[in-house]
Design a protein around this nucleic acid. Sequence first.
DNA 1: ATGCGGAATA
DNA 2: CTATTCCGCA
Length: 411
Amino acid sequence: MNVSELMHHSSSPPSQSSIDSTITLWQFLLELLQQEQNGDIIEWTRGADGEFRLIDAEAVARKWGQRKAKPHMNYDKLSRALRYYYEKNIIKKVIGKKFVYRFVTTDTQSMSNAPSDYCTPPNMSMCFVKEEQDIKHEIPTCLPAPVPPPPPTNISRNTDFSALSLLGTDVPSTAHSVSTPSPTDSVCSPSSSITSSATPSTSSPVDESRQSRKRSLSPNLATSSVSSSATSSSFTSTTSSMTTLSAPPPSKKGMKPNPLNLTGTTDFTLAPPLSPFFMLQNHQNSPLLQQQIGQLYAFTAANALASAGLYGPQISPLLTSQSPFRSPLTTPKNLGLGDIGKTPGTGDSQVFQFPPVSAFQSNNTLLNTFSNLISPIAPFMMPSQSSTSFKFPSTSDSLKTPTVPIKMPTL
DNA sequence: ATGCGGAATA
DNA sequence: CTATTCCGCA
């Protein structure tokens, strides 16, 4: 049996998504957005910017109501919920365009001059993985990079590898601790932070954590005056060594996840399926390349963990086949599931293509949608000629450990 | 005709 | 808490 079978094996009803009463609206929308089958009722408009449109608002509302068991749901009500997102900075209205909204981005400028922009790379910080227990220590982490190689020239300006950055952000305020991995609690929000154990409260000095029940920010800044003021990023990723999985330190989580941090630069706004990987290829000469590769791997590793069910449903809802924010390491459409390690007889015994799927898929339904994107073994593999293929390291390769190269900061 | 946001409530 | 429900207003 292949993985896809496994996935559907779990007691989940025929129609895949349904009983997640804990799902939030933005998650739901993202879910719809990622499934092309809903292309007639909701669509990405400017995907790279997180902009989407409810083509058939009432239909979307019905689906929403269906999911939440609210038979009388309609766009009027759904939109009210959407409006609440304005103040929470999760979604904003794209003024002037009917039924068009946008997932909020961590758009440059606002924080471009942040003293230590670590953990908040210039543009795009993608979200995912909300700390469940304390596992967050195992996932790729942004670290304050003392003085990373500031590129000679300003290459990085458009090099938004930040697409790979995880990270996030703010509101250290709430410090409730969840004692149990209750599946009902959790539920990720668009961006969650993956902070290094130290300085949980670090980030955004210029934070926008206005939690006040005030009206504040007028959403009319929708038409952001996007200027790529992005400066080079100075971040490094630590490995997500799965080997350290044991004994997570007592946590102090409770970070309230931030809005969605999608991409932000102008140059990044091409067609939706924009893969950072391609950008990577276009910047082979970038001094940041290594770092970025590291990010890539780390990123992958994070997903691997997620795929393994270690993080529950909080994987990036963005990294999906239809989303413009999907991982560069996947080629979702070309492969069937379960071809991990296959072809014992064929000549490509050493080359694999993603996405093989987690062989140890849990019965987490929410996970199903995303889990088949990246191979859990990805971080252990080496890139091969093909941009979408990887191979296991051979003895001649220098890779010794299945971890991402780390650059330790001198704290 | 959409979109907004207060208020009460679940 | 995150919506849901209702509603007056623009």
